[in-house]
Structure formats: structure tokens, C-alpha cells
Amino acid sequence: MSAALQLDGLCKSFGSLRATDNVSLRVEAGECHAIIGPNGAGKTTLIGQITGEIRPDAGRIALLGTDVTHWSVPRRALSGLARSFQITQLAQGFSALDNAAFAVQARQGHSFRFLADSRKDPSLRKPALDALTQVGLADRADRLVETLSHGERRQLELAVALAMQPRILLLDEPMAGMGPEEGERMVEILRGIKRHMTIVLVEHDMDAVFALADRVSVLVAGAILKTGSPADVRSDERVRDAYLGAGSH
């Protein structure tokens, strides 16, 4: 069976900086695969290449067995790749429910429908509300995005991705900027989701990573230093030197 996500020899340079250096990675269907690494290791560039915002200089990306290296961002999204953003990218001026409904609308096919009021369309509103319920935001459905707390916005980020009903969920630092309590809540939510979803988790918060990940890949200076179980990675000398040992985060 083909992997959920497979990267082969990805390379990307910006001028003299090798942001991604021959990265190969295989994410199996159903697993939660964490990507960790110190700041500047090239995580953002790697995510950009997986989602399609950045074109790799060399290498190949396959989603669910299909080569998507030259596909646009929307096309990858429609083929089953959902992502959350590190810095919340919600549509300001819209309610939480509207934001989730966008995702439902996208997967229902083209939106060249000009006259019917989309906010009165139960085929959009109901699945959107389900997604909000999944992350515990149902009671915030009608609140404008800008009136939500930071933690609630992070939850909404996740809800929007879930509303896409993806095959693979790419989470870009879902814990970013959260307090301990909010963080714990998010880990709980993710633990529930991970049972029936392939997840690629890019995260700084080591507690969260070790609580959720089935396997961990360590990215250092644009290259994969090690891939293995959380226990393996935790005990690896090189990883300690490069990352954990430095005592960061």
C-alpha cells in the first residue's frame, strides 16, 4: 500500500541557503508523524513544499500514491490534504461557523453558484457545525473570529481543517502561543482526532509531540537527522546534541 505522504529527495535553496537538503520522508496511513527541529531548521520551507506554496528545486512529493509535485495549492487541498497555519489565517469579519463553512463549501465542488444565499444552506452549515463541535467550539459558532480568544482561534484553525474531511492533516505548530491549560486541552482534542486520521505534526512543544506522535522525524539544517519512535529519538545522542541537548524549548 502506498504511503499517505511520501517525500523523495526534496531540495530547496534560497540564494546560498539550503533550506531543504535532500529530504526523504514516508508518512504511513493512520500514523501521527511529528516533525521537530530547532528554529531555522527549515520546517516552514518543508511545509510550504508539502502544501504547494513553495516549489521545490528538486525531488518529488506524492500524496496517497499520486505524484503532486507540480500541483497547485488548491488542487492538493481538494485531493485530501488539509493544513492548519502556525499564524492563524482565519477570515476576519466572518463568524466561526462561516470559517468552517468555507471548508465544507470547498470540498462540495465548484462555487460558481451566484444566487442562493449560502448562509441559509444546511448542506454547508450542518457539517461546519459538526466540525466546530468536534473541537468544542459549538457554542462559539456565531461569534466573529476577531472576538474569539487566542486559544479558541487555534481550535477554530483545527476545526476548519477538519471540516475539509481530509485524508491527511498537516498541523503547523497547533500549540503555538498557548498557555499550559489551553495546550492540554488541544492535546486532548488531537488525541481524539488521531484515532481516525493521518496527521503530520510540526511542533515545538516536546511534551505534546511525545504525547501524540507514533513516529518522529528530526530536521536539522534542512536535512532529516533521524526518524524513529519517540523513545528512540529521545535517547539518540545526535538528536540531543543538535536539539534537545541545547536545552531549547
Binding site: 502544501t51 506554496e53 497547485s72 495549492v73 488548491p74 488542487r75 487541498a77 481538494l78 488539509a82 493544513r83 497555519f85 489565517q89 482565519l90 477570515a91 476576519q92 469579519g93 466572518f94 462561516d98 463553512a101 468555507f102 471548508a103 463549501q105 470547498a106 470540498r107 462555487s111 460558481f112 453558484r113 451566484f114 444566487l115 442562493a116 444565499d117 449560502s118 448562509r119 444552506d121 454547508l124 476548519v160 475539509m164
Partner: peptide, 28 residues
């Protein structure tokens, strides 16, 4: 009517966050 339709929501959503709408699967 257009601005409240599905089509209009895509336009307005993309004005608020183009990156988000692309990541959701809309060829903006």
C-alpha cells in the same frame, strides 16, 4: 444576491485571507 452566494463568499473570504482560501481548495 451574488455577495451572499457561495461565489460571493469565496470572493470575500479570499479578500480576508487569500492563503486560507487556497489552502481550503479554492482556485482563487
Amino acid at each position: 444576491r451574488i455577495l451572499n452566494s457561495r461565489f460571493g463568499m469565496v470572493l470575500r473570504g479570499a479578500a480576508a485571507s487569500e492563503r486560507r482560501m487556497a489552502a481550503l481548495g479554492f482556485p482563487v
